[in-house]
């Protein structure tokens, strides 16, 4: 026959395909995970030469005795606690309403989706402009209803509500699309059967829609929580690079960023980042457990 080519070693061949991705992942993802973990324990080191003189738990001790870190944790947790369920609830309502529309379905979908794909920086700036105490649109609209001016951006009590509203607004479209996709996956026979059994619309929603959407909603809940724990960009922009009035918008990532970029305290930042990692890991594990249960 023509040519008797021997197959090249399979491992070598696979490696050729994997190499570009693995090099990048190795340098920028595998290595930093270990490095970041190790760096949390560096108490004395030279960043320029990468020489470590001393290791210990000092950084973690510092982080856990830093009131700012607790404040960041508290703010972030409150934010996650409210922003995530609220975002999902509103998205669920809107998605169900959109699903029942005959016309303009895709128009609504598109409008709600807009914030999701636009630059956080851009929209944060618009928000802070709209929330301006003296010239902002929001206060002007409130005035129409006779509500006095609110110092949105300088009142520390307003920071978290604003961030929550912003996050709900920005993530709405994404959640709606996922819920709509799940809604479309529900067999209409279930509804027909429920109607014959005499279930009213509300009962149908409660006993058919919600249970069948559960996997999707759980998925959204976990991924949104993970995303919410990492809130940073909007705080940084809306509050002119400050963590909000009286640190009312100090979040974990802001804390890390601040230690790292402003104070060049790499090791402390790494220790704090590690704590964030543990929180997110916990959430991921919970996600897996739930997903596992679902499959059984």
């Amino acid at each position: 026959m023509k040519k008797y080519s021997r197959p090249i070693n399979t491992e070598l061949r696979a490696m050729a395909y994997l190499l570009p991705a693995l090099v990048i992942i190795g340098i920028f993802q595998f290595y930093p995970i270990f490095k970041s973990f190790a760096m949390g324990f560096y108490t004395k080191f030279d960043y320029l030469t990468d020489r470590v003189y001393e290791t210990g738990l000092g950084n973690f001790k510092y982080v856990f005795s830093d009131p700012d870190f607790y404040l960041a944790m508290k703010n972030t947790c409150i934010f996650v606690f409210f922003a995530v369920p609220l975002g999902i609830l509103i998205a669920l309502i809107l998605a169900v309403l959109i699903d029942r529309q005959r016309h303009l379905k895709s128009f609504f979908q598109s409008v709600y989706f807009l914030p999701f794909i636009t630059s956080t920086v851009s929209v944060s700036i618009v928000w802070s402009w709209m929330l301006n105490k003296d010239f902002g649109l929001v206060n002007a609209l409130l005035k129409l209803f006779g509500i006095p001016k609110v110092a949105w951006l300088t009142d520390p009590n307003m920071t978290l509500p604003i961030l929550i509203a912003f996050s709900v607004w920005k993530g709405l479209g994404y959640k709606i699309i996922l819920i709509l996709a799940a809604l479309q996956g529900i067999d209409t026979q279930y509804y027909a059967a429920a109607r014959i059994d005499g279930a009213k619309a509300w009962k149908q929603f409660l006993h058919i829609t919600i249970p069948l959407l559960k996997p999707c909603l759980t998925f959204l809940y976990i991924t949104s929580s993970i995303g919410a724990f990492k809130i940073f960009d909007e705080v940084y922009i809306m509050y002119a690079q400050q963590p909000g009035p009286l640190k009312s918008g100090l979040t974990i990532v802001y804390y890390i960023f601040n230690k790292f970029y402003r104070h060049w305290e790499f090791a402390i930042a790494a220790a704090a980042a590690f704590v964030l990692f543990l929180i997110i890991l916990l959430l991921t594990v919970i996600q897996f457990i739930i997903a596992d249960k679902k499959e059984r």
Binding site: M1, K2, K3, Y4, S5, P7
Partner: peptide, 16 residues
Amino acid sequence: IFDNDIVNDVPAESRD
């Protein structure tokens, strides 16, 4: 074996 050739080592694309 194809005709008189052992083709065990001939890759698929060369077997006609």
